[in-house]
Design a protein around this nucleic acid. Structure first.
Lengths: 135, 135
DNA sequence: CAGTATCCCCTTGGATACTG
DNA sequence: CAGTATCCAAGGGGATACTG
């Protein structure tokens, strides 16, 4: 156990925990697709290109654990499992979408700021006058 | 045909990138404290107890690069560096705060969902229904 | 004071193989 | 089909030491 004694408002902790949960590599995408209605496991896997089985599973488990999605198993052969947003999940979608709209709206400004910063940093380099690769 | 509540492709990428930036371990706290006005490096370091120099530096650099904070150096001895939110940074604070409010408002619901999930999972265990690590 | 530079551990996440 | 189990690489992040 860690004796970290934060004198930080509970707000920060709450925000950080939510962002840490929602800010991982795949959660937003899963939630967004489920926002359109319930989907099966492989349906999600096919739709979200690039996601591995392991990550889809663990992402869904996490969302299920936190009450954002429901997992419904149909004991057929082959098995079928449906995932669907709960009310809480749909509710979460509102502020997340707001952040998403902000992101889309300001993407360009961030990109420009980044370009300025990198250009300034490259200009200050005296060791290597070459263009250094930004990501 | 499939219901299409919102388009997925550009939104997901933008949202994920923003969340990945803002969802790391310290960014929210730094931005939040800077929301109260400009602060010096060590002032931030003292206030955000638990953060290392390395992480404060890299967090601030990232925020600066993306145009969310400005870094002002006073060439005195000892040196003084002020950090302050830009307009973009303040603007970002709006949807982030919305998410924060959601987090605070629904913290309990998430906690309860988690407890239910863990209880159900513990119930399915073949072995000890005893103490599972509660965080 | 405000950083850089290292070392190193731990987590995240991808690839692959196996199962009910 | 819908997972688990295992291995492994990359990078985030902490502790510490050094610097202008």
């Amino acid at each position: 156990m860690k004796p970290d004694h934060f004198e930080v408002t509970p707000a920060c902790t709450a925000v950080h925990h939510l962002l840490a949960r929602v800010g991982d590599k795949w959660t937003v995408m899963v939630v967004k697709y489920l926002g359109n209605g319930s989907m099966r496991f492989n349906e999600l896997k096919r739709t979200i290109d690039g996601i591995s089985q392991k990550m889809l599973t663990s992402t869904l488990r996490g969302l299920e654990r936190d009450g954002f999605v429901t997992r419904t198993v149909f004991p057929t052969i082959p098995p079928r499992v449906d995932y669907e947003l709960t009310d809480l999940g749909r509710d979460l979608l509102v502020p997340v979408k707001a952040l998403g709209d902000w992101a889309i709206k300001n993407e360009q400004r961030v990109r420009e700021a980044r370009a300025r910063f990198d250009a300034a940093r490259a200009g200050k380099e005296h060791h290597s006058p070459f263009a250094d690769a930004a990501e």
